[in-house]
Every structure is written in C-alpha cells, then in structure tokens.
Amino acid sequence: MKKINELKMTFDSRSVNESFSRVAVVAFATQLDMTVEEMGDIKTVVSEAVTNCIVHAYRNTIGKIYITCTVFEEGVVRVKIRDKGCGIPDIEKAMEPLYTSLGGDRSGLGFSVMESFSDKLLVRSRVGVGTTVTIDKKIKGKLI
C-alpha cells in the first residue's frame, strides 16, 4: 500500500485525553472521503485502545501514549496505538469476549468492539515492555 499522509502524536495517559485523541484521529483521517458511519467506527476503536492504555497499561501511573495514523492511497486508514506499560501476559485470553482483568464497571468488551468495528486488528505485547494495537479501517469512498 502507498502511504499518502501520516500523523504522529504523543500525550499523557490522562482520561481527559480520551475524547481529544479519538476526535483528533478522525479529523486527520477525514482527508479520505468518509461516511459518518466510518468516522464513528474509527472514533470507537481509538477510544477503546486509548482507554486500555490508561486503565490497564499505566494503571495507577501516568505514562505516554503514542499514536500513529497513516492514510494509504488505496483508501485505508491505519491507526497504531502504543504504550510502554505493563504489557499483556496472555493476548489470546485478553481478547476473549467479556474477559477483563479489572472487574468493577469494565465489561471486557474493548477488544471485541475493536475487532467488530475495524477490518483488521493486530495486538503485539511484551510484559514489562508495552503493547501495540494496530487497526486497519477500509474506507469505501474515494480520495478527496
């Protein structure tokens, strides 16, 4: 695929940034002619991944969240959300619907939502090093 544009941003793992980060990624990606539906899908998956960095990766601490959003000529938006937090010991188990390590008001649906609203989801993680979630979203419309 041919890259046509890229955004990189780094921000603190503070919950107040959840809203900002999902809006910023969508605003950047709208250079591809997207439907409101597709914008909503991207907003939702970014929100899930960023929340996981805040709630799980940097639990009880503040660390940096790194997002790269790449727009491809073929009409694909790729969002990479990375943290240098605690990492995931068992990715397969973590991705099971309804699995949560926290309980409380967490429902264990974040990865299921990311999977369901994107075209491709890749999770790489190492305990003590961090986690990278890569999400591809195909945009049906054409380039602006």
């Binding site: 909503g40 907003k43 939702t44 929100s47 899930e48 929340t51 409380g104 008001d105 967490r106 429902s107 649906l109 974040g110 939502v113």
Partner: peptide, 13 residues
C-alpha cells in the same frame, strides 16, 4: 452522542 464499552459497563453495573 458517543459511547464505547464504558457505556456497557455503566449499564451492567
């Protein structure tokens, strides 16, 4: 106007 899985947690709780 927007909800992610936190909305599900809110309802379940």
């Amino acid at each position: 106007t927007f909800m992610d899985s936190s909305g599900v947690g809110l309802v379940m709780g």
